[in-house]
Structures are given as structure tokens and as C-alpha cells.
């Protein structure tokens, strides 16, 4: 049962976190999408392991549903979008690479610092896992802050959602499977709307760089 061991879970979680780091670093929109795909599949794996542990069928269904939406439909949407508008290269970040990495390190340190420790009281056995997924959440928000491209921001939000789901699943803060499917469906609607907006932005502004949208200020 290596797959169910916490080492393996930890590995998944690390992969999820690392994918966020790479999202910070990637230069192309497509690679960001692939990174998201990778992250989602890692999350799905995680969910599978948990559902096996719990041995619950509804949970497995949720996992399947998650897999379909996050690993297949959403990336396909994105890739279509990229192909249609031919915006291959992602818009750069605010901070340069070393600074970005430095900030990520700081965030990781913060999450492991003492004052967040009580958070793991939810599932004391999975301390590192929880902290790491919390770090994923922070890193994802930082991704939205750091990237100027509209698509990257979308990916950031989705990654944030992945971080939250992984945290919740690990901590056992699970809800009714029906509701979870609803949440995932909600996410799908969100992805559709957001992609429409991205293409609208590209049509109106000729770029995905959100910093060009500066008219709405005081």
C-alpha cells in the first residue's frame, strides 16, 4: 500500500506546490495550462487515494467528475482559447525570477512558522501536508498578484481552488458529494465565463496584459 501511504500523499502535495512555482516561472501560456493540467491530475490522484482510504463510492464519483472538468475540459478550453487568438507567450511577471522565488520561499517559511501550527490540529497526523497545501494557497494568490496576463490570473485562481480542495480533503473537511459536484460544476461555469472574458479582453485591448486596463481609476 505504498500508494496510500502518507509519503505518497506528501509527494502529491509537493507536486501540487511545485506546479504553482512553475506557473510563476513559465514563459508560455500553453505551459501554464499544462502545468494546471498536471496540478489537477495530481489533485485527482490525491482524491483517489483518499476515496480509496475512505472506501466511499460517492466520493469516487466526485473524483471522476473533478478529473473530467479539471484535467480535461478546462485545459481544453484554455488551449482552444490560446490557439484561436494565437497568444502563445504569457505576459511577464512583476517581480523578476529571483525575487519571485525569494517571495515564494518566504511564503513557505511563513506557513511553516509556529503561529500557523495550530491549524494542523484539524488533522495532526498530516501536519506537513496541510501546511504545504496552505502554502499552495498562498503561492496561488501570489501568482495572481504577480502575473499580468489575464490567462495566468485565471490559472492562478484555479490553482488556488485546487489548493483549497487539497487542503480540505486532507483535513477531512468534506461535504456532501452532491454539493461537491455542484461546486465543481460552478467551477466549470466560471471557466466558461472567464474564457469568454479573456477573449473579449483580447479583442478590445489587443493584449492579455491586464495592466493596460487602467482607465478605471480615480
Amino acid at each position: 500500500m505504498f500508494l496510500a501511504s502518507s509519503q505518497f500523499l506528501y509527494f502529491m502535495e509537493i507536486m501540487i506546490f511545485v506546479s504553482v512555482i512553475f506557473m510563476h516561472m513559465c514563459k508560455k501560456n500553453t505551459s501554464a495550462v499544462f502545468l494546471y493540467m498536471f496540478q489537477s491530475s495530481m489533485l485527482t490522484l490525491l482524491l483517489i487515494i483518499i476515496s480509496i482510504k475512505e472506501a466511499s463510492l460517492p466520493f469516487a464519483m466526485v473524483t471522476v467528475f473533478t478529473f473530467i472538468i479539471k484535467v480535461i475540459i478546462a485545459p481544453v478550453f484554455f488551449l482552444n482559447l490560446v490557439k484561436r487568438h494565437k497568444f502563445k507567450f504569457a505576459v511577464s511577471t512583476y517581480l523578476n525570477m529571483p525575487m519571485t522565488l525569494l517571495t515564494l520561499t518566504v511564503l513557505l517559511t511563513i506557513t511553516h512558522y509556529k503561529f500557523l501550527k495550530p491549524l494542523v490540529s484539524l488533522a495532526p497526523s498530516k501536519e506537513n501536508l496541510l501546511l504545504l497545501s496552505f502554502a499552495t494557497i498562498l503561492a496561488s494568490i501570489f501568482l495572481i498578484i504577480n502575473r499580468r496576463g489575464a490567462l495566468s490570473q485565471m490559472v492562478g485562481i484555479l490553482s488556488l481552488e485546487n489548493g483549497i480542495v487539497s487542503f480540505a480533503s486532507l483535513a477531512g473537511l468534506e461535504e456532501n458529494p452532491g454539493l461537491q459536484i455542484g461546486i465543481t460544476f460552478n467551477l466549470l461555469v466560471w471557466v466558461i465565463i472567464a474564457t469568454v472574458f479573456v477573449s473579449m479582453i483580447y479583442r478590445k485591448f489587443g493584449t492579455l496584459n491586464v495592466t493596460t486596463m487602467k482607465d478605471l481609476k480615480e
Binding site: 485562481i157 491586464v210 486596463m213
Partner: peptide, 25 residues
């Protein structure tokens, strides 16, 4: 500017609500 506003509306609220979701969980 309407698209600009709508994008900000969507992204900021999504980030916010996801944090809210985390809190809810």
C-alpha cells in the same frame, strides 16, 4: 471600461470567494 470592470469584478470576487470558501470549509 465595462469589460475592464467586469474582469476585475470576476477575478477579485473569485479570489475573495475562494478564500471565503476556504474559511467555510
Amino acid at each position: 471600461e465595462a469589460i475592464d470592470a467586469a474582469w476585475k469584478y470576476l477575478i477579485i470576487n473569485s479570489v475573495g470567494l475562494l478564500l471565503g470558501f476556504f474559511g467555510t470549509l
